[in-house]
Amino acid sequence: MSHGAADPTMHPEVQLSTSKGYFLGFAISAFLMLVATFLVTSHSVPPFGLLMVISVCAGIAVIAQIYFLLHIDISEHNIWNTVALVLFIPLFLITIGLTWWMFSQLYLRTMDMSVMSSAMQPAVHASATPGMAAMPGMNAHTDSGN
């Protein structure tokens, strides 16, 4: 086992990492999280738009973290990172995609669709507590549909 890379600080992934990169990754993630928190608490965007904006924020944060914190790139000396990434992408699509499909079909059968559609328009639920109107399954009327 007389491999030359006995010193862990000489490994390529360690060589790639810089304090600047880590701080940048942290700052971007923290900033995006603050944006998302602000949007959720201020209700400045309608629910569907909120969903979209938060998803985009989350997507950017994931990419920033993969690049700055995990140093996953497609360079040759990190070939196994690329293998892991290639494995990860279909799994990610399967997990999220099939879950999305399953829930869309499930909601068709288990949820009161009038509530579902009205939940996308906050004006209908203006009397309810702000922030809780957007999701299905919260009041007795909806539960009876289960």
Binding site: L106, M132, G137, M138, D143
Partner: peptide
């Protein structure tokens, strides 16, 4: 949770993933 925006079916889904 069953109310308050929770989704109890999501747990079953996540667990079996």
């Amino acid at each position: 949770t069953a109310g308050m925006g929770g989704n109890l079916m999501l747990y079953t889904n996540l667990f079996w993933i």
